[in-house]
Simulated assay, not measured.
Amino acid sequence: MKIVTGLIEINRQGVVRVLAKNLADETVLYIKTKKAHWHVEGADFYDKHKFFELQFKQLDEIMDSVAERIRSIGHYAPATLKSYLNLTHLTESESEKNDSQGFIKELLADHERIIMDLRGHIKSFTDDFHDAGSSDFITSLMITHEKMAWFLRSHLTK
Results as ranks from 00 to 15, higher is better:
Tyr46Gly: 00
Tyr30Ser: 06
Ser134Met: 09
Ala77Pro: 01
Met116Cys: 08
Ser135Asn: 02
Ala79Gln: 04
Phe56Lys: 02
His121Gly: 00
Phe103Ile: 03
Met116Phe: 09
Ile31Val: 13
Leu87Ile: 01
Met1His: 03
Glu106His: 13
Met142Thr: 09
Leu81Gly: 12
Lys82Arg: 12
His49Met: 04
Glu68Ser: 06
His155Gln: 15
Ala36Val: 03
Leu85Trp: 09
Thr27Gly: 00
Phe151Asp: 10
Gln101Ala: 12
Thr157Gln: 15
His39Gly: 04
Leu141Glu: 11
Ala77Met: 03
Glu106Ser: 14
Phe45Val: 07
Ser93Pro: 05
Lys50Leu: 15
Leu81Ile: 12
Ile115Val: 15
Ser134Cys: 11
Thr33His: 12
Thr157Ala: 12
Glu26Pro: 00
Glu53Ala: 11
Asp127His: 07
Leu156Arg: 12
Leu23Phe: 08
Thr126Gln: 11
Val4Glu: 14
Ala43Val: 12
Arg12Lys: 14
Lys123Ile: 08
Tyr46Glu: 05
Leu29Val: 05
Asp47Val: 10
Thr144Arg: 10
Ser95Met: 13
Gly120Val: 05
Lys50His: 04
Ile31Trp: 09
Glu96Asn: 06
Met116Pro: 00
Ser65Lys: 15
Lys105Cys: 11
Gln58Asp: 14
Met116Glu: 14
Gly14Phe: 08
Lys32Arg: 11
Leu81Lys: 06
Asp131Tyr: 06
Gln55Ala: 05
Arg119Val: 01
Ser83Trp: 00
Tyr46His: 13
Ala20Phe: 01
Val15Gly: 01
Glu68Cys: 06
His37Phe: 15
His37Leu: 09
Asp25Ile: 05
Thr91His: 11
Tyr76Arg: 14
Glu146Asp: 13
Leu87Met: 10
Leu81Ser: 10
Leu107Val: 04
Lys50Ile: 11
Val28Tyr: 04
Asp127Pro: 05
Ile10Cys: 00
Ile10Gln: 12
Val66Trp: 07
Glu26Asn: 05
His49Trp: 06
Arg119Leu: 06
Lys34Gln: 13
Ile73Tyr: 04
Asp117Phe: 15
Glu94His: 13
His155Met: 14
Leu118Gly: 06
Phe151Tyr: 15
Lys57Ala: 14
Ser154Ile: 01
His75Glu: 05
Ile73Arg: 08
Asp64Cys: 09
Lys48Leu: 15
Val15Asn: 02
Asp64Gln: 12
Thr5Gln: 03
Lys105Asp: 05
Ile8Trp: 07
Leu7Ala: 01
Ser72Asp: 07
Arg12Tyr: 02
Lys48Glu: 09
Leu152Thr: 02
Arg71Thr: 02
Leu118Phe: 10
Glu61Ile: 02
Gln58Glu: 15
Tyr84Asp: 00
Ala79Asn: 09
Ser140Pro: 00
Phe51Trp: 05
His39Lys: 10
Leu118Arg: 03
Arg17Ile: 03
Asp131Ile: 07
His145Lys: 10
Glu61Thr: 05
Leu141Gly: 04
Gly133Phe: 06
Gln58Pro: 00
Ser124Pro: 00
Lys21His: 08
Tyr76Asn: 09
Phe56Val: 01
Asp64Glu: 10
Asp136Thr: 06
Leu118Pro: 00
Leu59Asp: 03
Gly14Arg: 09
Phe129Met: 10
Thr157Glu: 15
Glu96Met: 04
Trp38Val: 08
Lys34Met: 10
